[in-house]
Design a protein around this nucleic acid. Sequence first.
DNA 1: CCCTGATGAGACAATCATGTCTCATATGGC
DNA 2: GCCATATGAGACATGATTGTCTCATCAGGG
Lengths: 183, 183
Amino acid sequence: MTLDREQVLRSAAALLIHKSTATMDEVAKAAGIGRATLHRHFAGRDALVKALEDLGIQAFEAALDAARLDEGTAEEGLRRLIAAVEPSAGLLSFLVTENQLFEGDQVHEGWNRADARVSAFFRRGQERGEFRIDLTPAWLTEALYGLIGTGAWAVQVGRVATQDFQYMIVELLLGGARRSVEQ
Amino acid sequence: MTLDREQVLRSAAALLIHKSTATMDEVAKAAGIGRATLHRHFAGRDALVKALEDLGIQAFEAALDAARLDEGTAEEGLRRLIAAVEPSAGLLSFLVTENQLFEGDQVHEGWNRADARVSAFFRRGQERGEFRIDLTPAWLTEALYGLIGTGAWAVQVGRVATQDFQYMIVELLLGGARRSVEQ
DNA sequence: CCCTGATGAGACAATCATGTCTCATATGGC
DNA sequence: GCCATATGAGACATGATTGTCTCATCAGGG
């Protein structure tokens, strides 16, 4: 009887990723529950998005943990991070876009935590001589988010094969488009 | 007396870039005109977005022309393209996001034209041995759009300095984050 | 088997954005 | 100065969405 809150959130995410303007009624139908029940568990649309935000942050921080960014080379860490983040790429992409709409409102402190970890990772990579120092950690962080979102969308519309998601992102982010001598 | 249609579109773009959900009333106020006048010139919100789309495509195709992608090395062409596109980056970023919402609806043929030009540019670069062949032209095209959008946003929120916009995008797209031997 | 609690369906009012309309005003050409 | 035209302000109806409520139904525990 007890409603599976997690399951509702996951189907809501799946819907909102593709149609960010979906109504509460559509969300409810997608989750296979009534609109009233949806309202009983999430006070309103804002509360629903907030819950999705919590879910996304949790997933992203779990991916950061699973990636063990400190082990091995920075390149290996980045590959593990992108691999770990792939299942949540759509949700994270949705949340990043949604976040950009929040004008001056306070952002979820979880994003700041995650940003700091990613940014620090790129900084360490620079200090160890693995990453270029002329691209700022803040930019590399944003670029990573942007490419994950672009990659998720490209896969969704079929411009990139699902199995190429990780490769395309990692290779572009690490090596760029230029054909270098060692290749 | 004649209303400056171009000026209205530009202020609408400036507003919608930051707040994609702005109402017609807000758009009118931002343009310094009445809502009725706005409706007289643009039948509805859809027509307004369509007009912005035309404006954005026109700007992007003008940038493609100005970049002279065929002259010199592919790298030089890409640098010129990003420089030429910078003034319209915000508008283009908004339109790309907006386009992703159009479910199965037909996309503006202008995007297909532009996509084809960019994609062909990357393909030529590959054929001439300047670009890696393991990253598909379609992905490089999407990544370019994504990075332009990310860059425009990063500049807008102050994470990247305005004068670094071009450099950050071009360098990441071409060379990637990895520190290579020649550096 | 009964009873408690959650659910689904639907009614309902309130809100908001939209699109249309009217009317008074102002601008610019003649 | 006059007139045609465009504009601004606002009223109005409409449709969509939201949030709340009621009520009948159903499932599970005791």
